[in-house]
Nucleic acid binder design. Structure first.
Lengths: 348, 348
DNA sequence: CTGAAAGCGCTTACAG
DNA sequence: CTGAAAGCGCTTACAG
């Protein structure tokens, strides 16, 4: 019907909607953006047209002048079983909005954060959430100058160029030490993470600070011992083995993350070490695999969902115009399991 | 210097480059796209200008008429430890190209594939790689009509609307059965995955087909037994427990994936079942956690990296104009570990 | 509250 | 091989 009239007009654009509802293109745009200055009746007409025509806004065109409604999630280490919780939180926060989260992932073993940030800026993303970024505070600040930014797990309560969302690591580490001490462990070592190549740019990990402080408070300062390994299975295993073979073998080990702890458990098992009687092990993140009977790993819950939720909320606020930095901190919670529960009392 | 001249011209665009190198905007565009019809000297001039000016193409603007050089990766289940391998392969294939992969993730427990596809189409992505999509073949075909599509793990060798990349599941399942039979196991059950809500739209899993065929070939057809569970820890555990408590308890269980197998190992351990002597367990995917001593899980290697690499390659070909479907199949490989190695011989 | 017009930074035919 | 012009589908001031 009506041939020749609309040959190439098979795509529904803002103009199609405008014609269909008998209003201007500008009016449709306003309805689309929930902007001020449209009457209820006009809005209703336009929305009805959009629905019947099946109109979908063209993100690239919007991005030319306005927003793309796309948020970039920077993820270095997709293998960390803790991150999915964070992502769930982000998605939950975004579910009722026009925003879509899109994850950019670094190569395994090769953080290519700046390249990823560039790619996201090039694509006119409205903002970025960096999960556990490896870059220094100064570098994050540079990114934040280009695009609204929220950093998760990048402890920098004084940053004013970007927002942060963190778990209270000092507190979390303290919970671990107190838990182990209560269980009768005294010689408690920490297997921490080493960030090769970052050198002095990195702030001292609050998790290590909390560990040392708690050891001191428990009168165990003489046992305080932090060994580090880069975040690869091979390196973690080598360091674990070395620690377990050392003359002054610890009675318990506080591992940087569950990922570290699982490797640690594996090495200990291969060496015939009895967990938890010969050695107590605690992780960090309380990721889903902690519950498996073969791990039964005591860990610290960071509330990944909440971290992600708050990060998304803060980012949207920033995009909406907030200029002052906000720093959200979650209180951690220790979840005790068999890996740190020595059979001291009666019964098992 | 030169005030008032370029007030708002702080952004480097294709026009800035054109002026700087003394050529037309169209010429710069051609260099940018590696298009035909530019002399070497012009190309060199333009490229040098782009470098010194630090020019970065504006993806939204490109997307208005041409490509966005963005590929969408559809990922339902970011918790599956097998998927990171695939993503690494994709990134490797893309590393020397202009394309950037961006991952869209479904909510845990709620595959929202079509919404995610819409979001990617809205954002003018050049193509989509679906990893383990839950949707039916017909639905994937509908997506493929809108945007170049490659499906990983969606067995459909006859699809002509889209490409597929798969591991040979029939072969893989056969390897598992043969391995277990060689180890002296006879009553071998399969704990497979249940896709609730998909009903008849789903093709029968080649993995189940391969299992049954191999059981028959080994003269063990009477033991063939497939039980299924949805892909949640709770459901898998309940089904595992039920299977282990059944009167006719199997001697070995072939699990749908490593994820299933880890839960299965956990349940077995809680019930005091001796792995591998009372019960052999095999997974699928050969994900990194199989190597941990506490799992020591025999599994089938699907070569995730290769799957991802091929998927990216095929997608780029499709975007470049290929119309006929291609279906790439990887040959699986069994990796034996302690979970299926009964102490039958001398030693150990 | 509503709309006409300019323009975002590219690519695409089309001339030359 | 090279370039001038139109146009992709929106948003943004600016009038009315």
């Amino acid at each position: 019907m009506t041939p020749g009239k609309k040959r190439k007009r098979d795509r529904v654009t803002i103009r199609t909607v405008a014609e269909d509802s008998g209003v201007s293109v500008a009016a449709v745009s306003k309805v689309l953006r929930d902007a001020y200055g449209v009457s209820e009746s006009l809005r209703a007409k336009v929305q009805s047209s959009m629905a019947t025509l099946g109109y979908r806004p063209h993100a690239a065109a919007r991005g030319m002048r306005g927003q793309t409604y796309t948020l970039g999630i920077l993820l270095n280490d997709i293998r960390n079983p803790f991150y999915p919780d964070i992502l769930d939180g982000v998605n939950t926060a975004l579910s009722r909005t026009q925003y879509q989260a899109l994850i950019g992932m670094g190569q395994a073993m090769a953080p290519i954060e700046t390249a990823l940030v560039d790619a996201m800026v090039d694509r006119q993303m409205d903002g970025i959430i960096m999960i556990g970024p490896r870059m220094s505070v100064a570098e994050v600040a540079i990114v934040a100058a280009r695009i609204p930014t929220v950093a998760i797990g990048h402890h920098e309560p004084d940053a004013d160029a970007f927002d942060t969302v963190n778990n209270n690591d000092v507190l979390g580490a303290g919970l671990v030490v107190k838990h182990l001490v209560a269980g009768g462990y005294r010689n408690i070592a920490m297997l921490s993470m080493d960030l090769p190549g970052l050198g002095e740019t990195v702030v001292i990990s609050p998790r290590e600070v909390g560990y040392r402080a708690a050891m001191e408070e428990a009168g165990l300062a003489r046992y305080a011992n932090v060994v580090t390994a880069p975040e690869t299975a091979r390196e973690v295993r080598a360091t674990a083995k070395h620690l377990l073979q050392s003359r002054n073998r610890p009675e318990a080990v506080f591992c940087w993350s569950d990922y570290f702890a699982f490797e640690f458990l594996s090495v200990a098992r291969e060496m015939g070490v009895d967990i938890p009687n010969d050695l107590g092990v605690v992780g960090y993140d309380n990721s889903s695999y902690c519950d498996l009977a073969q791990n039964a790993l005591t860990s610290v819950d960071q509330s990944g969902q909440l971290l992600g939720l708050q990060a998304a909320r803060l980012l949207i606020e920033r995009i909406a115009g907030r200029e002052t930095a906000e720093h959200f901190v979650v209180t951690p919670r220790l979840v005790a399991r068999a890996s740190s529960s020595r059979a001291v009392g009666p019964g098992d």
